[in-house]
Protein backbone atom coordinates (compact mmCIF):
# COMPACT_ATOMS: atom_id res chain seq x y z
CA UNK A 1 0.00 0.00 0.00
CA UNK A 2 2.74 2.43 0.99
CA UNK A 3 4.74 1.30 -1.99
CA UNK A 4 1.74 1.96 -4.23
CA UNK A 5 1.24 5.49 -2.88
CA UNK A 6 4.93 6.26 -3.28
CA UNK A 7 4.85 5.03 -6.86
CA UNK A 8 1.84 7.18 -7.59
CA UNK A 9 3.50 10.22 -6.03
CA UNK A 10 6.64 9.66 -8.08
CA UNK A 11 4.50 9.32 -11.18
CA UNK A 12 3.11 12.78 -10.51
CA UNK A 13 6.47 14.48 -11.04
CA UNK A 14 6.72 14.01 -14.82
CA UNK A 15 2.99 14.67 -15.17
CA UNK A 16 3.35 17.97 -13.35
CA UNK A 17 6.33 18.95 -15.47
CA UNK A 18 4.35 18.32 -18.65
CA UNK A 19 1.38 20.26 -17.28
CA UNK A 20 3.56 23.19 -16.21
CA UNK A 21 5.14 23.33 -19.64
CA UNK A 22 1.74 23.31 -21.35
CA UNK A 23 0.42 25.95 -18.96
CA UNK A 24 3.38 28.19 -19.58
CA UNK A 25 3.19 27.64 -23.31
CA UNK A 26 -0.50 28.51 -23.49
CA UNK A 27 -0.16 31.59 -21.27
CA UNK A 28 2.65 32.88 -23.44
CA UNK A 29 0.74 32.30 -26.67
CA UNK A 30 -0.58 35.87 -26.94
CA UNK A 31 2.03 38.22 -28.36
CA UNK A 32 4.25 40.03 -25.86
CA UNK A 33 4.22 39.93 -22.09
CA UNK A 34 2.84 42.16 -19.35
CA UNK A 35 5.84 44.45 -19.26
CA UNK A 36 6.40 44.82 -22.98
CA UNK A 37 2.71 45.70 -23.28
CA UNK A 38 3.16 48.32 -20.61
CA UNK A 39 6.20 49.73 -22.39
CA UNK A 40 4.29 49.89 -25.64
CA UNK A 41 1.42 51.70 -23.90
CA UNK A 42 3.79 54.19 -22.31
CA UNK A 43 5.58 54.83 -25.58
CA UNK A 44 2.24 55.44 -27.30
CA UNK A 45 1.38 58.16 -24.77
CA UNK A 46 4.84 59.63 -25.13
CA UNK A 47 5.79 59.01 -21.53
CA UNK A 48 9.27 57.55 -21.32
CA UNK A 49 10.34 58.29 -17.79
CA UNK A 50 9.30 54.96 -16.27
CA UNK A 51 10.41 52.86 -19.23
CA UNK A 52 13.82 52.36 -17.71
CA UNK A 53 12.25 50.90 -14.60
CA UNK A 54 10.18 48.51 -16.69
CA UNK A 55 13.22 47.44 -18.67
CA UNK A 56 14.87 46.68 -15.36
CA UNK A 57 11.88 44.55 -14.36
CA UNK A 58 12.08 42.62 -17.62
CA UNK A 59 15.64 41.64 -16.82
CA UNK A 60 14.78 40.99 -13.21
CA UNK A 61 12.14 38.40 -14.21
CA UNK A 62 14.14 36.97 -17.11
CA UNK A 63 11.47 38.00 -19.60
CA UNK A 64 14.15 39.01 -22.08
CA UNK A 65 15.40 35.44 -22.44
CA UNK A 66 14.27 32.83 -25.00
CA UNK A 67 11.02 30.91 -24.36
CA UNK A 68 12.51 27.66 -23.12
CA UNK A 69 14.84 29.45 -20.75
CA UNK A 70 11.99 31.59 -19.43
CA UNK A 71 10.04 28.45 -18.69
CA UNK A 72 12.92 26.73 -16.93
CA UNK A 73 13.71 29.82 -14.86
CA UNK A 74 10.06 29.96 -13.80
CA UNK A 75 10.06 26.33 -12.74
CA UNK A 76 13.45 26.72 -11.08
CA UNK A 77 15.49 24.36 -13.23
CA UNK A 78 17.68 27.12 -14.75
CA UNK A 79 19.59 29.90 -13.07
CA UNK A 80 17.78 33.23 -13.37
CA UNK A 81 19.11 36.67 -12.41
CA UNK A 82 19.20 35.49 -8.79
CA UNK A 83 20.36 31.95 -9.33
CA UNK A 84 17.97 29.02 -9.03
CA UNK A 85 14.85 30.69 -7.76
CA UNK A 86 11.59 29.28 -9.12
CA UNK A 87 8.56 27.22 -8.16
CA UNK A 88 10.65 24.30 -6.99
CA UNK A 89 12.56 26.57 -4.62
CA UNK A 90 9.26 27.87 -3.25
CA UNK A 91 9.24 31.20 -5.07
CA UNK A 92 5.78 31.40 -6.62
CA UNK A 93 6.59 34.44 -8.71
CA UNK A 94 5.62 38.09 -8.91
CA UNK A 95 2.30 39.59 -9.87
CA UNK A 96 2.82 42.67 -12.04
CA UNK A 97 -0.81 43.68 -11.86
CA UNK A 98 -0.91 43.80 -8.07
CA UNK A 99 2.77 44.59 -7.72
CA UNK A 100 3.03 41.99 -4.99
CA UNK A 101 4.41 38.46 -4.76
CA UNK A 102 1.91 35.89 -6.07
CA UNK A 103 1.72 34.26 -2.65
CA UNK A 104 0.42 37.49 -1.15
CA UNK A 105 -2.19 37.92 -3.88
CA UNK A 106 -3.56 34.39 -3.80
CA UNK A 107 -3.09 33.69 -0.11
CA UNK A 108 -5.87 35.84 1.38
CA UNK A 109 -8.48 34.69 -1.13
CA UNK A 110 -7.76 30.99 -0.51
CA UNK A 111 -9.67 30.42 2.77
CA UNK A 112 -12.84 32.07 1.51
CA UNK A 113 -12.62 30.24 -1.79
CA UNK A 114 -12.33 26.91 -0.04
CA UNK A 115 -15.11 27.73 2.41
CA UNK A 116 -17.45 28.73 -0.39
CA UNK A 117 -16.73 25.73 -2.62
CA UNK A 118 -16.79 23.26 0.23
CA UNK A 119 -20.18 24.61 1.22
CA UNK A 120 -21.32 24.18 -2.37
CA UNK A 121 -20.15 20.57 -2.58
CA UNK A 122 -21.82 19.79 0.72
CA UNK A 123 -25.01 21.43 -0.53
CA UNK A 124 -24.90 19.37 -3.73
CA UNK A 125 -24.49 16.08 -1.88
CA UNK A 126 -27.00 16.80 0.86
CA UNK A 127 -29.70 17.85 -1.58
CA UNK A 128 -28.97 15.50 -4.46
CA UNK A 129 -28.71 12.22 -2.57
CA UNK A 130 -32.14 12.02 -0.95
CA UNK A 131 -33.82 13.32 -4.08
CA UNK A 132 -31.87 10.93 -6.33
CA UNK A 133 -32.78 7.95 -4.19
CA UNK A 134 -36.40 9.04 -4.05
CA UNK A 135 -36.57 9.49 -7.81
CA UNK A 136 -35.02 6.11 -8.52
CA UNK A 137 -37.12 4.09 -6.10
CA UNK A 138 -40.33 5.79 -7.17
CA UNK A 139 -39.59 5.98 -10.87
CA UNK A 140 -42.33 7.64 -12.95
CA UNK A 141 -44.22 8.85 -9.88
CA UNK A 142 -45.40 12.46 -9.57
CA UNK A 143 -42.53 13.19 -7.22
CA UNK A 144 -40.04 11.82 -9.72
CA UNK A 145 -41.49 13.93 -12.52
CA UNK A 146 -41.52 17.00 -10.29
CA UNK A 147 -37.86 16.68 -9.34
CA UNK A 148 -36.90 15.88 -12.90
CA UNK A 149 -38.61 19.07 -14.03
CA UNK A 150 -36.93 21.15 -11.33
CA UNK A 151 -33.64 19.53 -12.21
CA UNK A 152 -33.88 20.50 -15.84
CA UNK A 153 -34.73 24.07 -14.88
CA UNK A 154 -31.68 24.05 -12.62
CA UNK A 155 -29.51 22.78 -15.46
CA UNK A 156 -30.89 25.21 -17.98
CA UNK A 157 -30.88 28.47 -15.99
CA UNK A 158 -27.70 30.55 -16.40
CA UNK A 159 -25.94 30.71 -13.05
CA UNK A 160 -25.33 34.43 -12.99
CA UNK A 161 -28.95 35.22 -13.80
CA UNK A 162 -30.14 33.07 -10.95
CA UNK A 163 -27.50 34.74 -8.77
CA UNK A 164 -28.69 38.24 -9.57
CA UNK A 165 -32.32 37.35 -8.92
CA UNK A 166 -31.52 35.70 -5.60
CA UNK A 167 -29.31 38.61 -4.55
CA UNK A 168 -32.12 41.01 -5.24
CA UNK A 169 -34.59 39.06 -3.15
CA UNK A 170 -32.21 38.37 -0.29
CA UNK A 171 -31.52 42.08 -0.17
CA UNK A 172 -35.22 42.96 -0.25
CA UNK A 173 -36.32 40.38 2.29
CA UNK A 174 -33.35 39.79 4.57
CA UNK A 175 -31.45 43.02 4.13
CA UNK A 176 -28.24 41.34 2.99
CA UNK A 177 -25.75 43.59 1.24
CA UNK A 178 -25.36 42.95 -2.48
CA UNK A 179 -22.19 41.18 -3.54
CA UNK A 180 -19.17 40.17 -1.52
CA UNK A 181 -18.93 37.52 1.12
CA UNK A 182 -19.56 39.79 4.14
CA UNK A 183 -21.09 43.12 5.03
CA UNK A 184 -18.79 46.00 4.00
CA UNK A 185 -18.16 47.07 7.59
CA UNK A 186 -16.37 43.78 8.38
CA UNK A 187 -13.92 43.92 5.47
CA UNK A 188 -10.39 44.06 6.77
CA UNK A 189 -11.58 43.67 10.40
CA UNK A 190 -10.42 40.82 12.66
CA UNK A 191 -12.69 37.80 12.96
CA UNK A 192 -15.60 38.19 15.32
CA UNK A 193 -18.98 36.54 15.92
CA UNK A 194 -20.72 39.19 13.88
CA UNK A 195 -18.31 38.75 10.98
CA UNK A 196 -18.83 34.97 11.07
CA UNK A 197 -22.61 35.34 10.90
CA UNK A 198 -22.31 37.86 8.12
CA UNK A 199 -20.11 35.49 6.10
CA UNK A 200 -22.52 32.60 6.70
CA UNK A 201 -25.46 34.72 5.62
CA UNK A 202 -23.67 35.81 2.47
CA UNK A 203 -22.66 32.23 1.68
CA UNK A 204 -26.24 31.10 1.14
CA UNK A 205 -26.89 32.75 -2.20
CA UNK A 206 -23.59 31.83 -3.90
CA UNK A 207 -23.84 28.28 -2.59
CA UNK A 208 -27.29 27.82 -4.09
CA UNK A 209 -26.31 29.55 -7.30
CA UNK A 210 -23.12 27.59 -7.86
CA UNK A 211 -24.68 24.36 -6.62
CA UNK A 212 -27.92 24.21 -8.60
CA UNK A 213 -26.51 22.90 -11.84
CA UNK A 214 -24.31 20.41 -10.02
CA UNK A 215 -27.23 19.23 -7.91
CA UNK A 216 -29.45 18.76 -10.92
CA UNK A 217 -26.77 16.83 -12.78
CA UNK A 218 -26.06 14.68 -9.76
CA UNK A 219 -29.71 13.85 -9.19
CA UNK A 220 -29.96 12.64 -12.77
CA UNK A 221 -26.79 10.59 -12.47
CA UNK A 222 -27.65 9.01 -9.15
CA UNK A 223 -31.12 8.18 -10.40
CA UNK A 224 -29.76 6.51 -13.53
CA UNK A 225 -27.06 4.59 -11.62
CA UNK A 226 -29.45 3.42 -8.97
CA UNK A 227 -32.10 2.40 -11.50
CA UNK A 228 -29.50 0.20 -13.20
CA UNK A 229 -28.63 -1.44 -9.92
CA UNK A 230 -32.21 -1.84 -8.70
CA UNK A 231 -32.97 -4.36 -11.42
CA UNK A 232 -29.93 -6.49 -10.72
CA UNK A 233 -30.36 -10.05 -9.64
CA UNK A 234 -28.61 -9.60 -6.30
CA UNK A 235 -31.33 -7.14 -5.24
CA UNK A 236 -33.92 -9.85 -5.86
CA UNK A 237 -31.74 -12.25 -3.89
CA UNK A 238 -31.73 -9.87 -0.94
CA UNK A 239 -35.48 -9.41 -1.23
CA UNK A 240 -35.93 -13.19 -1.33
CA UNK A 241 -34.12 -13.36 1.99
CA UNK A 242 -36.96 -11.35 3.48
CA UNK A 243 -35.07 -8.10 4.05
CA UNK A 244 -36.93 -4.85 4.60
CA UNK A 245 -36.97 -2.72 1.48
CA UNK A 246 -35.30 0.35 3.01
CA UNK A 247 -32.56 -1.66 4.69
CA UNK A 248 -31.92 -3.62 1.51
CA UNK A 249 -31.74 -0.48 -0.60
CA UNK A 250 -29.02 1.08 1.49
CA UNK A 251 -26.98 -2.06 1.90
CA UNK A 252 -26.88 -3.32 -1.67
CA UNK A 253 -27.86 -1.14 -4.65
CA UNK A 254 -27.01 2.23 -3.11
CA UNK A 255 -23.60 0.97 -2.12
CA UNK A 256 -22.99 -0.16 -5.69
CA UNK A 257 -24.30 3.10 -7.15
CA UNK A 258 -21.83 5.07 -5.05
CA UNK A 259 -18.71 4.04 -6.95
CA UNK A 260 -18.96 6.69 -9.69
CA UNK A 261 -19.38 9.36 -7.06
CA UNK A 262 -16.29 8.29 -5.20
CA UNK A 263 -14.41 8.36 -8.47
CA UNK A 264 -15.74 11.89 -8.83
CA UNK A 265 -14.02 13.21 -5.73
CA UNK A 266 -10.91 13.60 -7.84
CA UNK A 267 -12.70 16.19 -9.94
CA UNK A 268 -14.29 17.91 -6.98
CA UNK A 269 -11.08 18.85 -5.22
CA UNK A 270 -9.71 21.12 -7.96
CA UNK A 271 -13.14 22.68 -8.29
CA UNK A 272 -12.76 23.74 -4.67
CA UNK A 273 -10.48 26.41 -6.06
CA UNK A 274 -11.57 26.97 -9.62
CA UNK A 275 -15.20 25.91 -9.55
CA UNK A 276 -16.95 29.24 -9.60
CA UNK A 277 -15.06 31.79 -11.68
CA UNK A 278 -17.94 33.42 -13.53
CA UNK A 279 -20.38 33.43 -10.64
CA UNK A 280 -17.71 34.91 -8.39
CA UNK A 281 -17.12 37.70 -10.85
CA UNK A 282 -20.83 38.44 -11.19
CA UNK A 283 -21.52 38.30 -7.45
CA UNK A 284 -18.26 40.09 -6.70
CA UNK A 285 -16.97 37.36 -4.41
CA UNK A 286 -13.41 37.74 -3.11
CA UNK A 287 -12.31 34.30 -4.32
CA UNK A 288 -9.54 33.06 -6.57
CA UNK A 289 -11.84 33.07 -9.59
CA UNK A 290 -11.86 36.81 -10.36
CA UNK A 291 -8.13 37.03 -9.66
CA UNK A 292 -7.46 34.33 -12.24
CA UNK A 293 -9.68 36.05 -14.76
CA UNK A 294 -7.98 39.43 -14.50
CA UNK A 295 -4.56 37.79 -14.47
CA UNK A 296 -5.35 36.04 -17.75
CA UNK A 297 -6.74 39.20 -19.32
CA UNK A 298 -3.76 41.39 -18.44
CA UNK A 299 -1.18 38.67 -19.16
CA UNK A 300 -0.04 38.67 -15.58
CA UNK A 301 1.68 35.45 -16.45
CA UNK A 302 3.26 34.33 -13.21
CA UNK A 303 0.02 34.80 -11.31
CA UNK A 304 -2.19 32.99 -13.79
CA UNK A 305 0.42 30.29 -14.35
CA UNK A 306 0.66 29.61 -10.67
CA UNK A 307 -3.11 29.36 -10.18
CA UNK A 308 -3.53 27.01 -13.14
CA UNK A 309 -0.68 24.83 -11.99
CA UNK A 310 -2.02 24.73 -8.47
CA UNK A 311 -5.39 23.53 -9.76
CA UNK A 312 -3.61 20.85 -11.79
CA UNK A 313 -1.75 19.70 -8.70
CA UNK A 314 -5.01 19.49 -6.79
CA UNK A 315 -6.49 17.41 -9.62
CA UNK A 316 -3.65 14.93 -9.39
CA UNK A 317 -4.02 14.64 -5.64
CA UNK A 318 -7.78 14.33 -6.02
CA UNK A 319 -7.34 11.43 -8.43
CA UNK A 320 -5.00 9.70 -6.03
CA UNK A 321 -7.40 10.15 -3.15
CA UNK A 322 -10.38 8.84 -5.09
CA UNK A 323 -8.35 5.85 -6.32
CA UNK A 324 -7.37 5.02 -2.77
CA UNK A 325 -10.93 5.45 -1.52
CA UNK A 326 -12.25 3.21 -4.29
CA UNK A 327 -9.78 0.53 -3.33
CA UNK A 328 -10.82 0.77 0.30
CA UNK A 329 -14.52 0.59 -0.52
CA UNK A 330 -14.58 -1.89 -3.39
CA UNK A 331 -13.11 -5.32 -2.73
CA UNK A 332 -13.06 -6.11 -6.43
CA UNK A 333 -10.38 -3.48 -6.90
CA UNK A 334 -8.58 -4.24 -3.68
CA UNK A 335 -8.46 -7.99 -4.04
CA UNK A 336 -8.68 -8.43 -7.80
CA UNK A 337 -5.41 -10.36 -7.78
CA UNK A 338 -6.69 -13.11 -5.53
CA UNK A 339 -9.59 -13.95 -7.83
CA UNK A 340 -9.64 -17.23 -9.64
CA UNK A 341 -10.00 -16.47 -13.27
Amino acid sequence: MIFYILRRLLGMVPTLLVISFLTFFIIELPAGDYISNQIAALKATGESSSIAKLEFLRKEFALDRPFLERYLVWVGLWPGPHGFDGLIQGNWGWSFEYDKPVAEVVGPTMPLTIVLNAATILFVYVVAFPIGIYSATRQYSWGDYGFTFLGYIGLATPNFLLGLILLYFSNRWFGLSIGGLMDPQYIGKPWSMGKMMSVLGHLIVPTIVIGTAGTAAMIRRLRANLLDELHRQYVTTARAKGMREAHLLVKYPLRMALNPFIADIGNLIPSLVSGSVIVSVVLNLPTVGPVLLTALQSQDQFLSGFILLFVALLTLFGMLISDLLLAVLDPRIRLGGRAVS
Partner: peptide
Protein backbone atom coordinates in the same frame (compact mmCIF):
# COMPACT_ATOMS: atom_id res chain seq x y z
CA UNK B 1 -39.66 -15.34 2.47
CA UNK B 2 -36.15 -16.54 3.11
CA UNK B 3 -37.24 -18.49 6.16
CA UNK B 4 -39.90 -21.01 5.13
CA UNK B 5 -39.50 -20.64 1.35
CA UNK B 6 -36.13 -19.95 -0.19
CA UNK B 7 -34.95 -19.65 -3.77
CA UNK B 8 -31.79 -20.15 -5.79
CA UNK B 9 -31.36 -18.51 -9.15
CA UNK B 10 -29.87 -19.40 -12.48
CA UNK B 11 -26.96 -16.99 -12.55
CA UNK B 12 -24.64 -17.46 -9.59
CA UNK B 13 -22.46 -14.69 -11.04
CA UNK B 14 -25.03 -11.95 -10.68
CA UNK B 15 -27.19 -13.13 -7.82
CA UNK B 16 -24.63 -12.29 -5.17
CA UNK B 17 -23.56 -8.76 -4.35
CA UNK B 18 -19.95 -8.25 -5.41
CA UNK B 19 -19.22 -5.82 -2.58
CA UNK B 20 -20.14 -7.97 0.39
Amino acid sequence: RGDRIAIIFQEPMTSLSPLH
